[in-house]
Design a protein around this nucleic acid. Sequence first.
DNA 1: TCTGGGGTCCTAGGACCC
DNA 2: TCTGGGGTCCTAGGACCC
Length: 395
Amino acid sequence: MHIDVNSAFLSWTAVDLLNKGGKYDIRNSYAVIGGDESKRHGIVLAKSNPAKKVGIITGEPLFSARKKCPSLNIYPPNHELYNDMSNKMFKLLSKYSPDIEVYSIDECFIDYTKVKKLYGNEISFAHKIKDEIKNTLGFTVNVGIGNNKLCAKVATDFSKPDKVHTLYNHEIKEKMHPLPINHLIGIGRKSSEKLIKLGINTIGDLSNCNPNQLSKYFKNQAIKIIELAKGIDNSEVISDSGLSKGISNSTTIAYNLTSKKEVYHVIESLVDNLATSLRKQKRYAYVIAIILKDKHFHSYSHQTKLINATNNTKEIYETAKKLFDETWDNEPIRLVGVRLDNLVNEVNHQISLFESVEHKELESGLESVVDELNFKYGSSVIKKASLHSSKREQK
DNA sequence: TCTGGGGTCCTAGGACCC
DNA sequence: TCTGGGGTCCTAGGACCC
């Protein structure tokens, strides 16, 4: 069973506005959730059904969405609210099954086979939880049911909102094969274009392909995507998938950066966030990467693997700065990102000949005290002087 | 005032080892 | 009278998902 919130960010904002005494429901008007254009964050993050009907799509610039609908209402995102709504939904669902795989902020899978004895027929159960979410939390979801995760997820998208759909194995031919190729999970823009050029337009077309022929164009992926088209998927529902393999923090800056000093300031603040969250999870990173996007929208990255994993702000910052110096080609920069990868739960510190252990321990001790104070008294009682002054300069 | 941010997985090519 | 084969690890880039 796959559960997916209809237009999540927009629905959640709609509920919030109504709770605060708002008079009308933005789900029924030409509305989108969109970033701040003056900060160059101006894209559509979620759209209402009426907005969808005039051709507005997620990810497109607000500029172009407004051309399609001049009276469009744009609401800012509120990620704190979204996390809260998301948690409430997953908490509600956990009442029924501990085996929930959280797939994203607004989606999850439930292995219903494991609880079917308790709750009976899956279709009536799907209606029950769908309605319970609507009645207690105020937003609607779609529920898809299938013999595996792939089919359940494809079923969720059949028609929206507030619907339950099935895609059992015996329904694949009739319900899934006529769909255009890009409705298949795993076939994105690039692969659709390639397949359509080859005359493969529907999921059914792909399911009939000869893997040997297709491997000329898709290498090892050919077998995999033909299986998807046949509705074959053996992946398990994994509850508490828990810890991520890497974490990243990136930002598009309101204006292009042209000096090292400006970029260093951004890197410092990105690293500060990342290292704090790594320490909160008591984890350490082996790989540090810097990601840049220039004014032509060209992205590039540079990474390094450390001898010893770390969650020390200063060490990560110095490394990220060095990576930046090594890779920057002097083109004005639009986006700066830092990524920490190969995360581990503990470190076996290998002491190099030249470093002082005492100094390291002192430093990480200081950082945990700062983390604790920030946690106790609000997120930024204690900040680096450099971060503080950079904010003032901007004002 | 055109184009976000956070993830996962795969591939190609190079370095290195035996 | 020139240059194998198999394997691992690492990096950069890209496709895809939300």
